[in-house]
Amino acid sequence: MCARHIYGNIRKLHPNKPQLKKLFWSIVESPNEADYKARDPRLVAGLTFLLHHVVEDALNNNSESYNRTLEKARAMPLVEMLETMRRLAMKRIDLRKKIVKDYKGKFSLKVTKMIAFETKYRKNCKSIPGPTGEFEVSEDGIRYAVDMRAKTCSCRRWDLTGIPCRHALRVVLDQKKRYKTDNLVSDWYLTSKWQHQYSDSIKPVRGIKFWIPSGESTIQAPPREISKGHKKKPQQRMKGVNKSPKKGKKVTGHNRVMHCSRCGSTEHSCTNCSNDGVPCKPRPPKKQKTTTSHDEVAVDPGEGPSQT
């Protein structure tokens, strides 16, 4: 279930509570049981994820993005809808195939970004070697057990994502001769896996012109209803409390020439004008809207109620 949809339902029941959003997402992002209970164990969190899935995403943005692409196809008849979905999938696979072909790294971009992010915080950690392949790593007074052979850590970030956490990276830094970061990343992030995923595509289908006639009666599609009036815009998602609304364009003073209200010079303003005795020119009055009184409105003699 998508965590964003859960938060949307909770926000309907408890509106105008900006702290609820921060609390909710801190619980969702809790990777281990200790952090989970320290916040509020009444909501869904990363603790409920299965470890062999190697994913920590609590949202379904991928499916929602694809559903938005199929928004027009859903309004079509069944066969035309399926054909449109097939062609969209073929284009999507071909686009991803070109991106993967030009990528030269050993792992995906997500691995590179996460390792770079966790590397910034490994300097705050200290490791103590234990039995073979096991280490005790401390960070901010909290100790974690790291098993380099099983590729696990007490923080469970390595277990959930398949990417070494800051505690495992600290062990790699202290034990450079024994461990390498590339050997600790899950194989599901390899570029070869990524390329294999988009190596094949959907086979093309011949058009109706080349179909073998069956001799049966032809089924005609029902006529489409022409909608009247203006086209309705798709409903946009409501912005959260902490998100800024759309702002209009600011009025700038570009290409605007200022004049002194005393002498009319463009080199200075009236506050810096040397003509102290000259009074400032009065500003022109603002234009007022002209309204016609009720008595001045001419009435056509033919109008009005008829006489009996």
Rank of each mutant, 00 (worst) to 15 (best):
M1N: 12
M1K: 14
A3T: 11
H5N: 14
I6H: 07
Y7R: 10
N9K: 09
Q19K: 10
L20V: 08
F24Y: 07
F24A: 04
W25L: 02
W25I: 06
W25E: 02
S30R: 02
D35K: 11
A38T: 07
L43K: 11
L43V: 12
A45M: 06
A45H: 04
L47M: 01
L50A: 02
V54A: 02
N61S: 08
N61R: 06
N62M: 15
E64F: 06
Y66F: 14
L70P: 03
E71L: 12
R74N: 04
L78V: 13
E80R: 08
L82K: 06
E83N: 05
T84I: 09
R87Q: 10
K91N: 14
R92N: 12
I93L: 05
R96T: 09
K98S: 11
K101L: 07
D102C: 11
Y103R: 08
K104T: 10
G105S: 12
K106S: 08
F107A: 05
F107L: 07
S108C: 03
S108T: 03
V111T: 04
K113A: 13
M114A: 15
A116P: 04
K120N: 15
C125E: 13
P131I: 11
T132L: 13
T132V: 15
F135Y: 15
E136C: 15
S138F: 12
E139A: 09
A145P: 06
V146H: 02
D147G: 14
M148N: 09
A150Q: 00
C153M: 08
S154D: 06
R157K: 05
W158R: 00
P164F: 00
A168R: 03
L169V: 00
L169R: 00
L169C: 01
V172A: 05
D174P: 00
K176Y: 05
Y179G: 01
K180W: 00
N183F: 01
V185Q: 00
W188Y: 11
Y189H: 07
S192N: 01
S192Q: 02
W194N: 07
D200L: 13
S201E: 07
S201A: 10
R206A: 04
I208M: 09
I208K: 09
W211S: 15
I212R: 11
P213F: 01
P213S: 03
S214F: 02
I219C: 03
Q220R: 14
P222S: 10
P223W: 09
R224V: 05
R224A: 05
K233S: 11
P234T: 01
K239C: 04
V241F: 06
S244I: 14
K249N: 14
K249S: 13
V251F: 11
V251E: 14
T252C: 04
V257N: 03
C260K: 00
R262A: 11
G264Q: 02
G264H: 04
T266Q: 15
E267V: 06
H268F: 07
H268V: 14
T271S: 14
V278Q: 13
C280K: 14
K281L: 10
K281N: 11
K281R: 10
K286N: 09
K289C: 12
H294C: 08
E296S: 08
D300E: 04
D300S: 04
P301W: 11
G304C: 07
S306Y: 03
S306G: 04
T308Y: 03
